[in-house]
């Protein structure tokens, strides 16, 4: 019966609803530029959600851990075979997403009889200078948005639901300030933005369908509450690193020092 076009559309719509429902409460991810490069931050319970893909490419995601892991390995395999067969300079985020991951995800999404990938991703590539940095959001259905053409901003936010995502982006636009900020300042702003997004995601869960009016919250307080059961996870792509690999996971001490007087 799925052969009938109408049924197929219905099946896809159900699938979409199911996935988005699963993703809604996922811990958001914040991407923010700072003086030496790009910072990725999230607050997680246990599993790591920010990863290195290649010398200048990093990956953060929310969704089912097993699906995140699969997509991460797909990206790593594609990047490393390309880097080996051609050169490190030929590994580009645009090609990785547009020609590799996106078509594969779309195919997987439309096979309604197999389990879908429950995952939303944010991929970033560090350019030679901040003008050439590139950010892509890639969805479970293979659709993607490049910062060059869409937001044109050197920061971004990824959340399970659109409301939370919008709240975070609004917060970032409002508090953006100096793009040459230090890593410490970037950590503070990113952590607060995360709190805004997570709070919105959980509030959205409580209410019954109605759009909330803009809530005034104190991100610092909200963040402190969350940090009782979770920890901040952050990584940078750092242009000033002498090694070819620009990715570095920040250690707990560094993060705690930056966030202690919030």
């Amino acid at each position: 019966m799925i052969e009938e076009p109408y049924r197929w559309v219905e099946a896809i719509a159900n699938r979409r609803e199911y996935i988005e429902d699963q993703l809604r409460l996922g811990s958001p991810v914040v991407l923010l530029n700072y003086a030496d490069g790009l910072l990725l931050l999230t607050v997680s319970r246990e599993t790591c959600k920010i990863f290195e893909i290649y010398d200048r490419v990093a990956f953060a995601a929310l969704g089912h851990p097993a699906d995140i892991e699969r997509m991460r390995l797909v990206a790593i395999d594609l990047a490393h075979t390309e880097g080996f067969n051609r050169a490190a300079a030929d590994v580009s985020l645009r090609r990785l997403v547009n020609f590799g991951m996106s078509p594969a995800l779309k195919t997987a999404f439309e096979q309604v009889f197999s389990a879908p990938y429950i995952v939303k991703m944010l991929l970033v590539e560090l350019g030679d200078d901040s003008e050439q940095d590139s950010i892509v959001k890639l969805d479970y259905d293979g659709s993607f948005a490049h910062s060059e053409t869409e937001t044109k901003e050197p920061f971004d936010a990824l959340a399970g639901g659109n409301e939370a995502q919008k709240a975070m982006l609004d917060y970032l636009v409002e508090h953006n300030g100096n793009p040459r900020r230090t890593l410490e300042d970037a950590l503070k702003l990113a952590a607060k933005t995360w709190a805004v997004g997570m709070d919105m995601a959980e509030q959205g869960q409580d209410k019954t369908g109605e759009a909330t009016e803009k809530r005034e919250i104190e991100p610092e307080k909200v963040l402190k509450e969350y940090l009782k059961a979770r920890h901040v996870e952050a990584a940078v792509l750092d242009r000033s690193r002498p090694a070819t690999g620009k990715f570095r996971l920040l250690d707990e001490k560094e993060i705690r020092a930056a966030l202690k007087d919030l």
Binding site: L73, V74, H80, N85
Partner: peptide, 26 residues
């Protein structure tokens, strides 16, 4: 059914040569 993603079906052990082999490189 073929898997839509080029995902290793075996346990991933981090061996790059086996990834290359899957892409036809010996």
């Amino acid at each position: 059914m073929d898997h839509p993603l080029p995902i290793p079906q075996f346990l991933h052990d981090g061996d790059f040569l086996s990834v290359l082999k899957a892409h036809g490189y010996e």
